[in-house]
Design a protein around this nucleic acid. Structure first.
Length: 228
DNA sequence: GCGACAG
DNA sequence: ATCTTGTCGC
């Protein structure tokens, strides 16, 4: 296989089988244990908004103690791969990695708006980003992609496991507002810490605060771009 | 063939 | 994700 083309991010040239090979090969480097600095001081989040064939990546870093904003950043990137369930990395990974690599200071953990372990090959976009940048990531999604729901959490802060072959691959967590969210380890973090950190970041929105803030930043940048 | 299907 | 006004609920 032409690895040079893969590194050039010409993913659209590859077959489904080749894309799966990329995921399976890289997933051998996945680490599902806590490898981040404790106690956590800074937590960052990346979310995207879309304008036709371009994507705005927004990064927000907050103080883990009081959620005060430490840093904000956005970047515009051209899209070259379609949305395809199970292959989100090939569309959203490049812009996410691009903005993270532009940072001078990294947070202790990144929150990514995607699944991590809770993926058909246990290597969702949040995990793929983590392995690529070699930093801790948590995957947080608004709906399920893969896994067996045992029970739906009903009360704020409740967490129910998401399973696959009797193994827990993520958790379903009930926020104060709205439907439950699906969380799973991205990279360099355990299931337990994934759940604990997510619940700690839940405030008065459906998404945990860092992701909520980056989502709003991405949306606000979109309005500015459409005017200029 | 049918249903499921992150953003 | 996105197209979209007023409207229901916390």
């Amino acid at each position: 296989m032409a690895l040079d083309k893969v590194n050039n991010q010409k993913y659209q040239m590859l077959t489904r089988e080749e894309l799966i090979n990329i995921q399976n090969n890289l997933s051998r480097d996945l680490i599902i244990t806590d490898l981040f600095a404790k106690p956590i001081r800074k937590i960052g989040a990346v979310d995207l908004s879309f304008i036709k064939d371009h994507v705005i990546a927004a990064y927000v870093c907050v103080n883990y103690e009081n959620f005060e904003i430490i840093e904000k950043k956005t970047a515009l990137t051209r899209l070259d791969f379609p949305y395809w369930p199970g292959f989100l990395w090939f569309r959203e990974g490049p812009p996410i990695v691009k903005i993270i690599k532009s940072l001078d200071v990294l947070p202790d953990v990144f929150m990514i708006n995607a699944h991590g372990l809770a993926h058909p090959r246990r290597f969702g976009c949040a995990s793929h980003v983590g392995v690529k940048i070699q930093n801790p990531t948590i995957g947080i999604a608004g709906s399920k992609l893969f896994g067996e729901v045992i029970k739906i959490p009903r009360k704020f802060g409740d967490a129910e496991p998401l399973k696959s072959n009797h193994e827990t691959i993520g958790y379903i967590i009930k926020p104060k507002i709205g439907q439950p969210i699906y969380v799973s380890p991205g990279h360099m973090i355990s299931l337990e810490s994934t759940v604990k950190i997510t619940i700690n970041c839940l405030r008065n929105h459906r998404l945990p605060e860092p992701l909520y803030l980056s989502h709003r930043l991405a949306e606000s940048r979109k309005i500015i771009h459409s005017m200029s």
